[in-house]
Simulated scan of single mutants.
Amino acid sequence: MAQLIKSDFEPAWWLPSPHLQTLWPSLFRRHLPLELRRERVELRDGDFIDIAWHGSKGPLVLLIHGLEGSLESHYATTLISALNSAGFRCLFMHLRGCSGVPNRLQRSYHSGATEDLVDTVEFLRLKEELPKAVVGISLGGNLLLKYLGESGCDSAFNAAVAVSVPFNLKSAVKRLEHGFSRVYSRHLLRKLLKSHAQKCRSMSIPDTDNISSISTIYEFDDRITAIQNGFVDADDYYQRSSCAQFLKHITTPTLILHARDDPFMQPQDVPDLQDLGPGVSLELSDCGGHVGFVQGKLPWRPVYWLDRRVPAFLKHVLTRD
């Protein structure tokens, strides 16, 4: 049965605002050195995805990163380590072109590319290494929830967690064009443009899009993401890829963790109970920012709540099963 849950998350007193919650981990969180085994997944369309394995015992959990994310994202190695400490093996899935190596095809990764997740699942199924659970962060959370809704009862996973999801992609992109959130938009746009330029150089493609004139993520998606991936324009891409319309079809036990003050999206885009499928629990906190959720009494001893909440949910569901 779908449910709305009031989160027990309470922000650190020294990080009271959504922007401080969002920025602190990115600026100050330490990356953990991990022993990783890397592997390449060949996709049906001739492209590839790079994955990284960690741990040798326990149920396997797949992690999917956010926009322009990678193993260098502040939550990546730390969440892998937290899951490993809780008894899980982990598999980190880089989206196309996000592993430091440009992908082969002109098309790119995007928020609704569930076919890439399907191909990865099939690759793992053939290896008899199918994950028991999956965790998606931000854009990766949107992709995950879309997949779970599309697959319904045929989902490959026994449990799922989605964190700080942009339920309505157009609304989220427009939100990033206002106020202090423009800081995040400019940062992400610089990374998108840099990645696109590197890819064009690797494929000897001339800059016919004149990317230097692009000033917003909406423009980037309208002129590059949408066209490269078979959409008419940005609006078509956002409409077809936003996960909100797929939530009601999810039957996999799924926890969505979301802060009402997330500066990447509008509060009115948070789903209501009637929007959720029978497998979904939406856990809402008043504070937490975007993939922040930092607690702790002292600034030099921060506590990252996600590293506790995500493993706890997965252990609860998988033990029950």
Rank of each mutant, 00 (worst) to 15 (best):
N142P: 01
T208N: 14
L276P: 10
S202E: 11
L247M: 08
D207T: 06
E177T: 15
D50S: 11
R175S: 12
G136E: 00
Q21V: 04
R309T: 13
K127S: 05
V161M: 12
S281P: 03
S285H: 04
R38L: 07
V270Y: 11
G87R: 04
S138R: 07
I250D: 00
Y218H: 15
D275A: 04
A2N: 10
A244C: 07
S185M: 12
G87K: 00
R175V: 13
L71C: 11
L193A: 10
A312S: 14
P299E: 11
M1P: 05
L144Q: 03
W13H: 14
L27N: 08
E68H: 04
V294Y: 07
E219W: 03
L314E: 01
L36S: 02
P102Q: 02
L298P: 01
F167A: 02
L79E: 03
S285I: 13
L15I: 10
S213P: 11
C90K: 02
P11T: 12
L130A: 06
F92N: 05
G230E: 03
R223Y: 09
L105G: 13
A76D: 05
D262Y: 03
E150R: 08
N158T: 04
I217H: 08
Y304C: 02
P16W: 09
A160C: 05
S81G: 07
D272N: 15
L192V: 07
H178P: 00
A159W: 00
G289N: 10
R37H: 14
G279L: 05
H54Y: 07
T254K: 08
R29E: 10
Q3T: 13
Y109E: 06
Y238Q: 06
A113V: 02
V173Y: 06
Q295I: 07
E35G: 13
M265G: 15
I250A: 00
V183Y: 15
L71P: 09
C243E: 03
P11N: 12
I137V: 14
L83T: 02
C287T: 13
L15H: 02
P131W: 10
F180T: 13
N210S: 12
